[in-house]
């Protein structure tokens, strides 16, 4: 059993506990917030989960997540463009996204295999430049569903595209019920945990084991007859596809597609979440993904209302940012320390 609770988690838990106690003291209804935090867990959870394959293959945090996100956005745009709605719409969007993500992921992997050892920094800038490149694309994208086009210009994609009439909230609204004032959408949760389980299963197979071995010890893996570059490529594709599915889940829950520069900022929150979950930049478990995803989002959910009640909104907002950045830094320093001792 891996030790789950380490100083970073303790800091976060203490912060969360203080917030919760304050919330109770201020009579803020906690049950609704708990429901929200679950929705958020899933909304962002898949994106957090998408970091896992690359971490496990020793490629580091995928700061190039925008690559996967853009693939997802493209997939969803296609689905919307062909007026696919409801469950079928979401499924179509995911299918398109996954297919595009495989292509993008493959190219992205080619690049990352060239920058071994410095993937994180290279990926950061690959992500940034890819987003700018896609901005060029969005402004002239040849889609023709009028619901996606600029209202004044009449061509090119809108900044945000509403999904309500297509497949917005289909997962959220599946098997939704109330219990003790907590709104739980079972469909959404089931989907997430099913996906987690699927990832878990994949890591049980031969290729999954090879991925983990490459991440832990590339030389060993090579000596065991593994084609290291192939495994790394597969891991990157896997990450990219999950990233694409992640944005699909995110967008259907949020109800809008956000294009242009929106994907730029997707990677840092996901990376923060996974580090808060206790990953140290090496092999990461699904448990850490879920824990980190939940803690990170729970803080967002609770800190907002509490801060507003206390009438010092900016304070909480800045403190929250400070805490997250501190934890990421801590994880970087601490994670390295662990490896040195090994």
């Amino acid at each position: 059993m891996k030790k789950f609770i380490r100083p970073p988690q303790i800091i976060i838990l203490v912060f969360l506990a203080v917030l919760t106690i304050t919330a109770i003291y201020l009579h803020i209804p906690l049950n609704a917030m708990f429901g929200d935090s679950l929705v958020r867990l899933v909304m962002n959870g898949v994106l957090v989960l998408s970091l896992l394959p690359m971490l496990n293959a020793g490629i580091g945090l995928n700061f190039g997540l925008p690559v996967g996100v853009v693939a997802g956005l493209l997939g969803m745009c296609l689905a919307v463009n062909y007026h696919q709605t409801g469950w079928f719409g979401l499924a179509a969007a995911m299918l398109f996204s996954a297919m595009i993500a495989v292509v993008f992921g493959y190219l992205y992997a080619l690049l990352l295999n060239k920058v071994k050892g410095r993937e994180e920094i290279a990926a950061t800038f690959v992500g940034f430049s890819f987003v700018s490149l896609m901005c060029l694309f969005w402004s002239v994208a040849p889609f023709n569903n009028p619901a996606m086009l600029w209202p004044i210009g009449g061509k090119g994609m809108r900044l945000t595209v509403g999904l309500k009439d297509y497949f917005g909230k289909v997962l959220n609204n599946t098997w939704q019920f109330n219990i003790l004032g907590i709104k739980i959408s079972l469909g959404l949760l089931l989907f997430f945990f099913l996906l987690c389980f699927l990832v878990y299963l994949i890591y049980k197979t031969k290729i999954g084991r090879a991925m983990i071995a490459v991440g832990e010890n590339e030389d060993f893996a090579r000596l065991s007859g593994i084609n290291v570059n192939r495994v790394r490529t597969l891991s990157v594709i896997f990450s990219t596809v999950l990233g694409a599915l992640g944005i699909c889940v995110y967008a259907q829950s949020y109800g809008f597609l956000e294009l242009y520069t929106a994907p730029l900022m997707m990677a840092f929150p996901a990376a923060s979440a996974i580090l808060i979950g206790g990953s140290t930049g090496g092999k990461t478990t699904i448990g850490q993904v879920v824990l980190g995803g939940y803690l990170y989002q729970a803080i967002y959910v609770i800190s907002g209302p509490v801060a507003n009640q206390l009438l010092m909104p900016e304070f909480a907002e800045i403190i929250r940012m400070l805490a997250t950045n501190l934890i990421i830094l801590y994880a970087l320093l601490y994670g390295e320390g662990l490896r040195k001792n090994a």
Binding site: K206, E216, F220
Partner: peptide, 23 residues
Amino acid sequence: GKGLLLKHSILENIVFTAMMTKD
């Protein structure tokens, strides 16, 4: 450095190469 997956179990280490190369 090259001969073992230190964070894995004895069992996994023993069967790993055979699993990867010879199914």
